[in-house]
Design a protein around this nucleic acid. Structure first.
Length: 591
RNA sequence: GCGCCCGUAGCUCAGUUGGAUAGAGUAAUCGGCUUCGAACCGAUUGGUCGGGAGUUCGAAUCUCUCCGGGCGCGCCA
């Protein structure tokens, strides 16, 4: 409809140009918007005010000319000149009713489009280190990323969802060593657990599983292990160094176990946690197309290739025994190390290789959903793509702000290392998947999220998700009533279509308008990568329905009117269902 | 210190390719079930859009500056 109106205006302007009232060489950027206020009609255009300056004419007079030359259309009831020069369009009832035909025809596809032209886009999200269960902060990234992917798929992109598994590097070594130490406890030894190890109960559980399968195969005496290890930094000994302590323990583990056995424990812990994360996300309705391993990049020499490519472009140099990437040449604030003086490549080097690999796989858009604390990382990744001669514009990074947790009015600690955190699983079981998904995507991602756990848990009935779901269930209930009705009413959408012209009261017309907005909202949310538009729209739609419900009875004796109304709420149910499906919320038939 | 994000009703938030009288939810007050589900609807109250300056027909939206809050500035990942 927007483009239809825009075409009408274009024709009008062309007429004026032909008659010489307007110059020929105008840059036309016609924007047609829905009005905020029904008193301004359905759509409005500000082109007269935009052109007023360039053609040096009064905007109101200009608008008047446009209106005069506007071709008639069966969809436009009337046009009005308003305010400083707006042209307002009022749709005919026929145009408003059109949406019902569309919904009946397209059903669950209503709202989808071919806008993306099957362009290959990858959405990478969560990608939390596999060193422990996901916490509620990861949950936000999960919900956000999943909906972004859904939206892009809905408007015709070829979307692939990916989780980058950081299965290489020091954090994983710390986890492996933590598991081993807990395992020794299961073997009957007594140990002193490092302050910098992973202290969560899940590590103890993994160690128990390890012991159950392998027995005491990996058992070593703790007194042997601790020998020669740098002292830990604890309250009794503030002189110690917790970083050196854990590093020494890692090296001792590798030395005493041998590479092969160490790897068994390492992979055991890794796989347990990955399986747990996969299951957790699966239950949350978040499934991936690919779990991409960082280690595979190292093993398959992709990291080396990437560094070579930077070298070929003369973008790396040696300093202090390390290899540096000249990222400051490409907008980063300083150069970055890609290979340490001990010969190991950095995490950043893997990430350079990873993003190169993404483009190599044929994705022309790559969307990374990151925690906002990684924002400083964006320029260097972009720089690496530029340096390799790749298109850094293909990369879009969505920074999701932290969910700040409050428990009993106080900020809750969120540290994986200390084991003090609220897991996503815990949140899901407390407030339910639907409320969690809805709550997470209700806010735009750059907005901080105050998550009051007690409120979310104790008053979950006040969560807006129930309002939307209730509208859906209520409509289902009406149709159950039809089925059970003693008057043997039947409803059939194709015959009902013949009587939709009977829809004419204000509640019905505004509900129709709201339904017609759905595809526009989906497109806008997808183009701007803004999932929060969907829950806001759904709330609005539910509100229109509930108002209608309270104002008019649907199951009336008049067959034609009854059919028309039932068809309208049937379409409403379809759109509610489509929208909830996009954000991963269920559409219950009863509540 | 430098960089990124945020500041809109008591609270939680929408609204930015510049548009008309800045909107929802919640809280508060009042009203509505003999009815297809009251987990609902309607009404009222509530604002220096953090402060100031600028750009223009027009600024919550763009620019500058200041104030306040969050985060980041490793040969960690």
């Amino acid at each position: 409809m927007k483009s239809h109106i825009s075409d009408l205006i274009k024709l009008s302007i062309q007429q004026l140009q032909k008659s010489g009232d307007l110059p020929d060489n105008l840059v036309l950027d016609i924007v047609v918007d829905r009005t905020k206020d029904a008193r301004h009609g359905d759509f409005s255009c500000n082109i007269a005010m935009r052109l007023a300056k360039t053609v040096k004419q009064n905007p109101r007079k200009l608008a008047q000319d446009f209106v005069r030359m506007l071709p008639s259309s069966k969809y436009i009831e009337k046009t009005e000149l308003a305010g400083p020069g707006f042209i307002n369009f009022y749709l005919t009832t026929q145009a408003l009713l059109n949406v019902v035909h569309e919904v009946v025809e397209q059903k669950s596809r209503f709202g989808s489009s071919l806008l993306g032209n099957k362009e290959k886009v990858q959405v990478e999200f969560v990608s939390a280190n596999p060193t422990g269960p996901l916490h509620v902060g990861h949950g936000r990234g999960a919900a956000h990323g999943a909906v972004v992917a859904n939206l892009l798929a809905e408007v015709g992109y070829d979307v692939s969802k990916e989780y980058y598994v950081n299965d290489a590097g020091r954090q994983m070594d710390i986890l492996a060593t933590s598991v081993w130490l807990r395992y020794l406890e299961h073997c009957g030894d007594s140990i002193v657990f490092p302050s910098n190890g992973y202290k969560g109960q899940y590590v103890v559980d993994i160690a128990a599983d390890l012991f159950a399968i392998y027995g005491a195969d990996f058992s070593r005496l703790f007194v042997e292990i601790i020998k020669g290890v740098c002292a830990d930094e604890v309250s009794e000994n503030p002189e110690g160094d917790k970083e050196a302590h854990i590093d020494d323990l890692i090296n001792k583990a590798k030395a005493l176990l041998g590479e092969k056995d160490y790897r068994v424990i390492f992979d055991f812990g890794l796989n347990k946690i990955i399986e747990d994360i996969k299951q957790d996300l699966g239950e949350f309705g978040v499934v991936y197309d690919e779990w991409f391993s960082e280690r595979s990049l190292v093993d398959s020499k992709v990291v080396d290739k990437a560094l070579q490519r930077l070298l070929d472009h003369d973008c790396v140099y040696e300093k202090d025994g390390a290899l540096w990437f000249r990222s400051s040449k490409f907008g980063d604030e300083k150069d970055r190390v890609v290979k340490r003086d001990n010969g190991q490549t950095t995490y950043f080097a893997s990430d350079i290789a990873y993003h190169m690999n993404k483009l190599d796989r044929g994705f022309t858009r790559i969307i990374d959903v990151w925690g906002a604390d990684h924002h400083g990382y964006v320029p260097r990744v972009r720089a690496s793509l530029d340096a390799m001669g790749l298109d850094s514009n293909a990369l879009e990074v969505l920074l999701v702000q932290f969910a700040i947790l409050y428990r009993k009015g106080k900020k809750a600690q969120m540290s994986t290392r200390s084991g003090e955190f609220v897991t996503l699983r815990e949140l899901r079981s407390e407030v339910g998947n639907d409320a969690a998904r809805f709550f997470y995507v209700m806010r735009k991602c750059e907005q901080h999220l105050d998550f009051d756990l007690d409120l979310a848990k104790s008053q979950s009935n006040e969560n807006p998700v129930f309002y939307v779901q209730y509208a859906h269930a209520r409509i289902c209930s009406v149709f159950r009533e039809i089925a059970d009705n003693e008057k043997n009413y039947i409803f059939d959408s194709s015959t009902a279509l013949e009587s939709i012209a009977l829809l004419d009261n204000s509640h019905e017309l505004s509900l129709l308008t709201c339904l017609a907005r759905y595809p526009e909202i989906v497109e806008s949310a997808a183009v701007n990568l803004e999932p929060h538009q969907i829950p806001h729209y759904l709330r609005d739609l539910a509100n229109h329905f509930h108002s209608y419900y309270n104002a008019h009875k649907f199951i009336v004796d008049d067959l034609a009117l009854r059919n028309a109304r039932l068809l309208l709420i049937s379409a409403t149910r379809q759109v509610l269902s489509n929208g909830m499906s996009l954000i991963g919320v269920s559409a219950p038939e009863v509540m």
